Computed example of a mutant assay.
Amino acid sequence: MKIGFIGLGNMAAAMIGGMLQKGIAKPEDIIGSSKTETTAEKVKTKFNINTTTDNTAVAEQADILFLAVKPIFFTEVIAEIKDAVKTDTLIVSIAAGRNLQYLKDAFGRPELKLIRCMPNTPALVLEGCTGVCIGENVTEDETEQVLSLLRSFGIASVVPERLMDVVVGVSGSSPAYVFMFIEAMADEAVAAGMPRKQAYEFAAQSVLGSAKMVLETGKHPGELKDMVCSPGGTTIQAVKVLEEKGMRAAVMDAMDACIEKSKCM
C-alpha cells in the first residue's frame, strides 16, 4: 500500500512521523510532494521517504492520498491531480471548510472515494484528536484502514458531516484556548514570584494531568473538580472568581464564534 501526501507542512510531518513511529507504515510506503525543493528535501532527510515537487506523481502512485495543503490552494491542486487519481484511491482531506460536496464537485468524478477529516496540532506530539466523516463510496474496511493511520498520532472518531464545524471548535481550534489558559496561569505565577520557565512547566503539566484524569477515570469533569475543592479551601475560592468572571460563558461564546466562522468558510 502506497500512502501519498500532497503538502508536507507541519501537520503532514506529524502524521508521517506517527505512522512511522507506530510501525503502521515503512518509509518506502510513503511518498510526498511539496511546493518547494527545500521542503521536499527536508522531509526526505528527516523521515527517509520519497519526496518530489510533482503533485501528479504522488496522485498517480497513492492508494491512500492525503490532501494536506491549505484550503486556499485546494482548487488549484485538485485541478492539477483530478485526472491522475486512480478510481479506487482513498482521498483524505484535512482542510477546514472544505466539505465532501466541495471535494466531489472539485474532482468532478462521482465514483471517487472521499474522506474528510480534521486533525489538530497536538498531533505533532502524537496526542492529536481527529474528527472523520466518510463519503458514500467508502466501505467499512476502507474506513478502518484510514482510521488506523489517523490513530497513529492520537485518537480519531467518525462523526456525521453536520458536526464537522463543531469538531473545529472543540478540537481543531481549541489548543489555542488551552495555550492561552496555560499562559495566563503562568503569568500569574510569575507575578507571584515563580521563574517563567518553571511557571510554564507547572501550568502545562497540571493541564496535561487533568486531561488524563478525564480520559482515564471516565468521571464527569464536575466530579473531578469537586474532588479538588475542599470545604473552606483555596480551590473553591478560585472557582468562585472564575464563575464571577464568566469563564464558562466566555469559553462557550468563543467556541460558538469559531463554529460559526467554520460554517462560513
Rank of each mutant, 00 (worst) to 15 (best):
M1P: 04
I3P: 04
G4N: 03
I6A: 02
G7C: 11
N10M: 13
M11V: 02
L20D: 01
I24N: 03
I24L: 15
A25H: 03
E28Q: 14
I31D: 00
T39M: 13
E41I: 13
V43R: 00
K46R: 13
D54K: 04
N55D: 09
A57K: 05
V58H: 03
A59W: 03
Q61V: 02
F66E: 03
L67F: 09
P71V: 02
T75F: 06
T75K: 13
T75E: 14
E76G: 04
E76T: 09
V77R: 00
I78M: 10
A79P: 08
E80L: 10
A84Q: 09
T89L: 14
L90R: 00
V92P: 00
V92W: 01
S93W: 00
G97S: 07
Y102M: 10
G108D: 06
G108F: 02
P110R: 06
E111H: 03
P119A: 08
P119V: 02
P119F: 06
P119S: 05
L126W: 08
E127H: 10
C129Q: 05
G131Q: 00
V132Q: 01
I134Y: 01
N137M: 10
T139A: 09
T139R: 06
E144F: 13
L147D: 04
L149K: 02
R151A: 09
R151Q: 15
F153Y: 09
V158Y: 11
V159Q: 07
V159S: 06
P160G: 03
M164L: 03
V168N: 00
V168T: 09
S171P: 14
P175Y: 12
A176P: 07
Y177C: 05
V178A: 12
I182L: 07
E183D: 15
A184Q: 07
M185D: 10
A191Y: 07
G193C: 14
R196A: 14
R196S: 12
K197V: 12
Q198I: 11
A199L: 05
F202S: 05
L208P: 03
A211M: 08
M213S: 08
V214M: 15
L215R: 05
T217A: 07
G218A: 14
G218L: 12
H220K: 10
P221W: 12
L224K: 02
D226H: 07
V228P: 05
S230H: 09
P231A: 10
G232Q: 12
G233L: 11
A238T: 07
L242F: 15
E243T: 04
K245I: 09
G246P: 08
G246F: 14
M247H: 05
M247K: 01
V251L: 15
D253T: 14
A254T: 13
M255G: 10
D256G: 06
A257D: 02
C258Y: 02
C258N: 07
E260P: 01
M265H: 03
